[in-house]
Design a protein around this nucleic acid. Sequence first.
DNA 1: TATTAACATGTTACATTATAACATAACATC
DNA 2: GATGTTATGTTATAATGTAACATGTTAATA
Lengths: 148, 148
Amino acid sequence: MHDHQVCINHAMQMAKSVCKRNKQELTPLRQAVLKLIWNSHQPVTAYQILADLSKKRKMVAPPTVYRTLEFLEKNGLIHKIESLKAFIGCSHPDQNHGSVFLICRKCNYVQEELDMHGQSNIDKIVNKNIFLPQSYVIEVIGFCKSCH
Amino acid sequence: MHDHQVCINHAMQMAKSVCKRNKQELTPLRQAVLKLIWNSHQPVTAYQILADLSKKRKMVAPPTVYRTLEFLEKNGLIHKIESLKAFIGCSHPDQNHGSVFLICRKCNYVQEELDMHGQSNIDKIVNKNIFLPQSYVIEVIGFCKSCH
DNA sequence: TATTAACATGTTACATTATAACATAACATC
DNA sequence: GATGTTATGTTATAATGTAACATGTTAATA
């Protein structure tokens, strides 16, 4: 049985230590946004966060949300799912890793799987083209185990 | 020396045969949009297409452009680059394939490389999770050979 | 302790991307 | 010439994202 509160608490603890390591400040606003993202087991959009924040704390405007998301992403605490224009909490913020996202079209759950970019066939392609990679977007859209 | 006009002509010929095979109509509008996309060696956004079309043909509205893009994508004639919200012509519309896109942050060129999804480490992940994949977004952002 | 610098957040206004819903046209087939 | 199908046009608006400038907050430091 999955106790999501444990998930959230763990994520918040990790966030604190990651920010400490990076010498970045995890302010109340940033904590609130991270918590909102983790509260959902599904990816959340910037404007969903905006609405939630505005209810729970006080009225905020889009730049506040986007800046906070940028901070969290830069510190590896969340990921943007490009094909959904939405955000999820990073399951492994302590490790430096690449990720493959498995996105279910039915239940909307996004499974993050670690992928050591550097030895995959994608990297064979990268090397063949003498391409210098900086970041990867790897998303698989389909149906998860429970939904097909 | 790269003669891009040859590229374009080839792409348009391919498009005709693909549509014939799929029993889909490659109308003048659809041809015009496809040609506009191929005219650029860089990804183009929906609203760039809208502006170009409106100049060269007649005023069009967003839904016209998006519908046409949807048609072209469904028939495998173009690809959407999610991380750029922009579109490029497909280099291999005749083959059923997966693609890896190498996106240069400096010159904006996007190299499409074929990738036989089904034996990669991404698919190992997919299989491990008993996930049923329907489509893939695989984009690598960085610097191309000429730009680093 | 006033001053400054660095960072975080607030505010206003707008730009860009995308779609819903309904209307018309164009053409084929019966 | 009525009907169905596909393609396109039209209007309006929703959803996503950012630029530019203002203010607050904290912590060195002169």
